[in-house]
């Protein structure tokens, strides 16, 4: 039964990196309900990050439709696309998430700068950043330190706080735990889940690690939704 109001919907999307014939991506159908947590599994090089770039609108599909919160990226100008991304999506990468020279607070507040609606949902960005840090188990004084001085595990939590601030409806995480050791990995995920559940946020997380599967509402394999062409056609 199709979801009447998915936060994310991809239909018959095709993409090929310019000048690279060897790799192509074709996604038949992918949808994500509001508040749903989904783990997307796939081998390295299978096109997971490419798919996330399509969802974030930083690359445009060659064919098909990408809808985030009922809005088709193809109908937006590049500038609107950037703003829309900031409004709708909280992003966490595998590593190098933060501006190392900026304070933790400024890093967390950064997306609000480009997303007025998200900014409007936050009364006091400084307070909210502090609260999120506390919720994510970071020490209280971390807020004013330079992000570059934190440990990798702490940096990932700050990235999570940044994705959560202003409660965007969709959080996308590209292998956020692969640079963490097993223990940190677990607590990081717990905290992320707790926060996204609290705000009814959808979570799409990409990984090549199947052990995380049981914590998610749903698990999808790249092979189920996408065809990747690796041969030079």
């Amino acid at each position: 039964m199709p979801d009447p109001d998915p936060i994310l919907l991809l239909e018959d999307v095709r993409y090929r990196w310019p000048g690279r014939r060897a790799f192509g991506l074709h996604v038949g159908q992918l949808s994500l309900a509001r508040g749903e947590t989904v783990l997307l599994l796939g081998e390295s090089g299978s096109g997971k990050s490419t798919l996330l770039s399509l969802i974030c609108g930083t690359i445009a599909a060659d064919a098909g439709r990408v809808l985030v919160a009922d809005t088709d990226f193809a109908k937006l100008s590049p500038g609107q696309r950037d703003k829309f991304r900031a409004e709708q999506i909280g992003l966490i990468f595998q590593q190098f998430n933060l501006l190392p020279f900026a304070s933790v607070r400024d890093n967390i507040a950064l997306p609000l700068q480009f997303a007025p609606k998200r900014r409007a949902r936050v009364k006091d960005p400084s307070q909210e950043a502090r609260r999120l840090c506390r919720e994510l188990g970071l020490p209280d004084d971390v807020i004013t330190t330079r992000a570059g001085t934190l440990s990798v595990g702490q940096q990932q939590r700050v990235a999570a706080a940044r994705a959560l601030i202003g409660t965007p409806p969709l959080i996308i995480a590209d292998e956020p735990t692969s640079s963490l050791d097993a223990e940190t990995q677990e607590s990081f995920l717990e905290l992320l889940f707790a926060q996204s559940r609290a705000h009814d946020t959808s979570l799409l997380m990409v990984s090549h690690d199947a052990r995380l599967a049981d914590q998610f509402d749903r698990v999808i394999h790249m092979t189920e939704i996408a065809q990747t062409l690796r041969d030079a056609a």
Binding site: C56, D82, K83, R85, E87, L110, Q113, F114, R162
Partner: peptide, 10 residues
């Protein structure tokens, strides 16, 4: 990072 957070190339 700026781009991912919604900053335009501008």
């Amino acid at each position: 990072i700026f781009r991912a957070m919604g900053a335009r190339p501008r």
